[in-house]
Design a protein around this nucleic acid. Structure first.
Length: 302
DNA sequence: TATACGTGGCG
DNA sequence: TCGCCAAGTAT
C-alpha cells in the first residue's frame, strides 16, 4: 500500500491517537473519580461500581461511599453487611462483598494503600483483567491495554470494521489493543481513558453519533458502508421470574431492615416456595445473608 | 467457553 | 410493552 491513497485514509495508530485524545481533551466528563482528590481508592471504588452499572446511577452512591469510607482501612473495619447495605440498588451486590474483601486485603497485605502492579491488583477479590488494568492506568498512569465493552466496540468499528465486537473478548482483540497502545506511559493512560469515553459518549452501541466522532474519517466500519452485524446476536439475559429476581427481592428486604428479619417476612416476597428457598440458599451460600440462631435473617455481620 | 449474577432507563 | 444495554468477575 502506497501513501498516495486519499479517498479512504488508513486508521494508522498515530492518527487515531491524536484524534481520540484531542477529542477527549475537550469532551471528557467531569466525573468525581477523575478528580485528583479521588486517589487510587476512589478509582478502585468507581471501577467496582461501574462493572455493569451506568455512570449516572453510580455517582451518588460513589459520593456517599467515599465520604463514609475515605480509605480502604475505613471500609475494612466495617461488617460486610454494611457494605452491602451502602451498595443500595446498584445491582450485583456480590460486588459490594468483593469490594469489602479487597479493602480488607489492602489493609492487611498492602499497608492500607491500593497496590500498584497489575499482578497485585488482579489478586484482589472482584478485580479481573479489566479492573486491574483500569486502576493501574487511571490511578497510577501506567501503560496497560484497558479493554472494556466501550473500547472493544470502538476498536471493532474503527479498526476491524464490524458493528460489534465478539460476544467474549478474544485473543485477537487483546493483541490489537496492545498493538494500538501508545508507547509513552502518559499517552497510553490518556488513550485508555479517551477510547472508553468515546465509546460511552459517541460510538455507542445502539445509535453511534458518527457526526460527532473525531475519527469518523478513519473508521473502517464507516468506510465499509456501516454493514449490519453478522455474527450471532448477543444473548439477552432474561430476568423476570428468575432466581436473580427473587434474590433481589429477598436482599431488598434485608437491606432495608433495621432488625433481623423473620422467615415469615421473607416468605412474602415470592409466591413459589421452592424457588424462594433456592434463592435464599443462594444468598446464604454467597455470603450476602446470614441466618441467626433464632432463625431470623440479616445482612452478613450487620 | 458458557452461565449466573441486579437494576433501571431508554427507544 | 419489552428487548436492549450498562466501565465485568467468578466458576
Amino acid at each position: 500500500m502506497t501513501a498516495t491513497s486519499t479517498s479512504a485514509p488508513e486508521a494508522d495508530p498515530a492518527s487515531l491517537h491524536a484524534g481520540v485524545i484531542e477529542w477527549f481533551d475537550d469532551h471528557a466528563r467531569d466525573l468525581p473519580w477523575r478528580r485528583p482528590e479521588a486517589g487510587a481508592w476512589g478509582v478502585m471504588v468507581s471501577e467496582f461500581m461501574l462493572q455493569q452499572t451506568p455512570v449516572n446511577r453510580v455517582i451518588p452512591v460513589y459520593e456517599q461511599w467515599l465520604a463514609r469510607w475515605p480509605r480502604p482501612a475505613d471500609l475494612a473495619t466495617e461488617s460486610p453487611g454494611e457494605a452491602v447495605r451502602a451498595w443500595g440498588r446498584l445491582g450485583y451486590p456480590r460486588r459490594a462483598l468483593r469490594l469489602h474483601g479487597a479493602a480488607t486485603a489492602i489493609a492487611e497485605r498492602h499497608g492500607g494503600d491500593v497496590p500498584k502492579t497489575h499482578q497485585q491488583l488482579l489478586a484482589l477479590p472482584g478485580v479481573g483483567e479489566y479492573t486491574a488494568a483500569a486502576v493501574a492506568s487511571f490511578a497510577y498512569g501506567q501503560r496497560h491495554a484497558v479493554l472494556d465493552t466501550n473500547v472493544r466496540r470502538v476498536f471493532a468499528r474503527a479498526v476491524t470494521g464490524t458493528q460489534y465486537p465478539p460476544n467474549a473478548t478474544t485473543a485477537a482483540e487483546r493483541r490489537l489493543a496492545r498493538t494500538l497502545l501508545p508507547e509513552g506511559e502518559r499517552t497510553a493512560a490518556r488513550w485508555a481513558a479517551a477510547t472508553m469515553e468515546l465509546g460511552a459518549l459517541v460510538c455507542t452501541a445502539r445509535s453511534p453519533e458518527c457526526g460527532r466522532c473525531p475519527i469518523a474519517r478513519l473508521c473502517a466500519w464507516r468506510q465499509a458502508g456501516s454493514p449490519a452485524h453478522e455474527g450471532p446476536a448477543r444473548r439477552v439475559q432474561t430476568y423476570a421470574g428468575t432466581d436473580r429476581q427473587v434474590r433481589g427481592k429477598l436482599l431488598g428486604v434485608l437491606r432495608e431492615a433495621v432488625e433481623p428479619v423473620p422467615q415469615a417476612v421473607l416468605d412474602q416476597v415470592w409466591h413459589e416456595p421452592e424457588q424462594r428457598a433456592r434463592a435464599l440458599r443462594g444468598l446464604l451460600m454467597d455470603g450476602l445473608a446470614e441466618r441467626l440462631p433464632d432463625g431470623r435473617y440479616r445482612l452478613p455481620g450487620a
